[in-house]
């Protein structure tokens, strides 16, 4: 064989431009890391001066939030956020799980394909719209059944109900995905030994999809804690440490809105305080999200 005449394969051309493009793409992916870093850094640098004026322990354990009197005890805001999230969960867990079970176990395929996008409409609704709905419809309804006073406009209950409606599609959609991932053979096995749909849904599908369902609920609660516009409009802007869900309350997010709406001068304690409560909100939602991740890891069962 004449080796000299053989075409030479090999020797790829070098493509410096390609290398540069790849670096650019990688840099774009790094932007997301910069965003996270930016969030942490700005919260800390803008919030830190606040803790020079206000003792951290007083901030975390104080039960009076009166910025005009320089009294910054965050418990009223935190408890309002958590209470509204709790009410939302009470509304959304039965509705969301019920819808998920209906869609994955009972509904015929065409029905499912119609209902699911309609439910997702509710999830895509801007939260300001739900805030308006709370003011315009839920609160008057609560007044007419006597749960809250005739001339009371704001209540945690009203806010909790609309936030519950907001996270219902989230919970139902994620739970349904988890339930549909349960293999058909497990259902058929149960039907084979005489189980009814209720038993299959409750004792086979739900336990098998538990990790996904719990993660869906936890993510829903996290969304409820960070929800802003609906709670600002419906729960009010009056910081109030109360265990009564029909009282008006101010959540962490509503406080940030209330200060931002006015003209808080940069560098003032009030301006710094929105970053301080921002840190708290960030940490609380981060913890909740980590719990969701844990649920998925801990209870995940892989089916083949």
């Amino acid at each position: 064989m004449d080796t000299d005449g053989a075409p030479r394969l090999a020797r790829r051309r070098r493509r410096p431009l390609e290398q540069a493009t790849l670096l650019l793409l990688g840099a774009a992916a790094l932007v997301s890391v910069l965003v996270t870093a930016g969030i942490v850094i700005t919260l800390i640098t803008e919030g830190a001066p606040f803790f020079a004026d206000v003792n951290v322990m007083d901030f975390l354990t104080g039960s009076v939030w009166e910025p005009v009197n320089d009294t910054y005890g965050v418990l009223p805001l935190l408890s309002a956020s958590l209470m509204i999230a709790g009410i939302a969960a009470l509304v959304a867990v039965p509705l969301g799980l019920g819808s998920a079970i209906y869609l994955s176990e009972y509904a015929a395929e065409p029905v499912r394909r119609t209902i699911k996008p309609i439910l997702e409409l509710l999830a895509g609704m801007p939260t300001i719209v739900l805030g308006f709905f709370a003011l315009d419809s839920i609160t008057p309804a609560l007044q007419s059944i006597g749960l809250i006073d005739e001339n009371q406009i704001f209540s945690a209950l009203s806010a909790g109900i609309v936030v519950g409606l907001l996270i219902t599609p989230l919970i139902s959609s994620l739970s349904e995905d988890a339930m549909r991932a349960v293999p058909r053979a497990m259902r058929e096995g149960a039907y084979g030994v005489g189980a009814t749909k209720r038993v299959v849904a409750g004792r086979i599908v739900l336990p098998a999809a538990l990790s996904g369902v719990m993660a869906a609920i936890v993510l829903g609660v996290s969304r409820a804690v960070g929800e802003t516009m609906a709670v600002t409009l419906a729960a009010g802007t009056q910081a109030n440490l109360s265990a009564n869900p029909t009282d008006p309350m101010q959540t962490i997010t509503a406080y940030i809105v209330a200060i931002s709406k006015g003209e808080a001068v940069r560098g003032s304690t009030q301006y710094q305080s929105i970053f301080a409560v921002g840190i708290l909100l960030f940490v609380v939602t981060l913890i909740i999200n980590l719990v969701a991740v844990r649920f998925v890891r801990r209870f995940r069962t892989v089916y083949h």
Binding site: A29, L30, S32, V33, V35, T36, G38, I39, T42, L43, T45, E46, L219, S222, R223, V225, G226, E227, T228, T253, I256, V257, S260, I274, F275, G278, L281, F282, T285, L286, N289
Partner: peptide
């Protein structure tokens, strides 16, 4: 892997926190 985890975490950060970032930045 860290970048991926970071992106899914970012998607769960409350939108008002992005407002605080925008205000400061």
């Amino acid at each position: 892997r860290a970048v991926e985890v970071n992106i899914s975490n970012l998607a769960a950060v409350p939108s008002i926190i992005y407002g605080l970032l925008g205000l400061a930045l």
